[in-house]
């Protein structure tokens, strides 16, 4: 009798405790972003105080020795490299996912899927080395001469290509899941009126899967923004606003990774790097909010 009575109490206590503990952990995890923003902001206050924000963001003058920190080249570098990567990756990934979902026999799909997922596990340094050995020379010797310009090969295009391949697995994987989630009957409804498979994909499957596809692309872009190592190895790291994709660039993550811990004897430099991190964080945050808003609208229009 006694045991029976005791047992439920301890069980409930455990349940309560577990619930509270998990709540605490969740709050901590959610706070982490805010804490980071706050920390970075505190650290970057000196450089923010040294010159107006507009100048920091839009000046192209990066002369740390004279105390001039214009982040515009780096912000543009980040946007260019990410943009090129997305332009390359999105069409290729969507076509691959469409093939795997709509055309490939189940056996091919089951073989290819894990291979693509393995791509996601390759360390980014390996992609970087591959980029230096293959992509950079290719751009230097073939692409640039074709357009009759000179390029060392270390360029936005090289960074974009390497980055595109790095975000392939995320986009393909998520897009494939999204396509598979479209009910077979919706396809049949389209096929039954005499549509071809391609027409069905174009007008029905893609439409039905649009919110999910958008989410897949957003995930890919989010990853691309922050990717540091591989890009840093092939993008040239020149602090100038790039004019075309064969120019070198200097994205924000590369700036931080290359200089933190080395140039800290220069006054304000560490504060400037913290500001770079803050800008990167805010750009990603902004992008996330924006894509959420767009996604919500897309979803409403599809219903």
């Amino acid at each position: 009798m006694k045991r029976l009575k005791l047992f439920p109490i301890s069980r409930r206590a455990k349940d309560l405790l577990a619930g509270k503990l998990m709540l605490l952990l969740t709050i901590l995890a959610a706070l982490l972003v805010l804490l980071m923003v706050a920390g970075l902001y505190l650290k970057s206050r000196p450089v923010l105080a040294s010159q107006p924000l507009a100048e920091l963001l839009f000046s192209t003058k990066w002369r740390p020795f004279r105390g001039q920190f214009g982040f515009f080249p780096f912000i543009m570098g980040t946007l260019w490299v990410t943009g090129v990567a997305v332009l390359i990756a999105v069409p290729l990934c969507l076509l691959t996912a469409i093939y795997l979902s709509e055309y490939a026999p189940a056996r091919v799909r089951e073989w290819v899927k894990p291979l693509i997922d393995i791509l996601a596990g390759i360390p980014s340094v390996v992609f970087g080395v591959w980029g230096m050995l293959v992509v950079v020379p290719f751009i230097k010797d073939s692409v640039a001469p074709f357009f009759k310009v000179f390029s060392t090969g270390y360029s936005i295009l090289a960074g974009g290509i390497v980055l595109a391949i790095m975000i392939f697995p995320v986009i393909i994987h998520v897009a494939l899941e999204v396509f598979r989630a479209v009910p077979q009957e919706v396809r049949e409804a389209s096929l039954a009126v005499g549509a071809t498979r391609w027409q069905t994909v174009k007008h029905v499957v893609l439409r039905k899967a649009l919110p999910g596809v958008a989410a897949a692309i957003v995930l890919g872009i989010a990853r691309a923004f922050g990717e540091t190592m591989a890009v840093l190895m092939v993008v040239g790291n020149v602090a100038k606003v790039p004019g075309n994709v064969l120019d070198p660039a200097y994205p924000l993550p590369a700036l931080i990774a290359n200089n933190y811990g080395e140039m800290l004897s220069i006054p304000l430099y560490d504060s400037a790097l913290m500001l770079a991190a803050l800008i990167l964080l805010l750009v990603i945050l902004l992008f996330n909010l924006l894509s959420r808003a767009v996604l919500a609208r897309v979803e409403r229009s599809i219903r």
Binding site: E188, V193, G194, A195, V204, R207
Partner: peptide
């Protein structure tokens, strides 16, 4: 596609296109 065009199909549950 020509064969299917000759036949309208109704499934167990309605699946309107999106």
């Amino acid at each position: 596609t020509h064969i299917r065009r000759k036949m309208g199909l109704l499934l167990q549950r309605p699946y309107p296109l999106p």
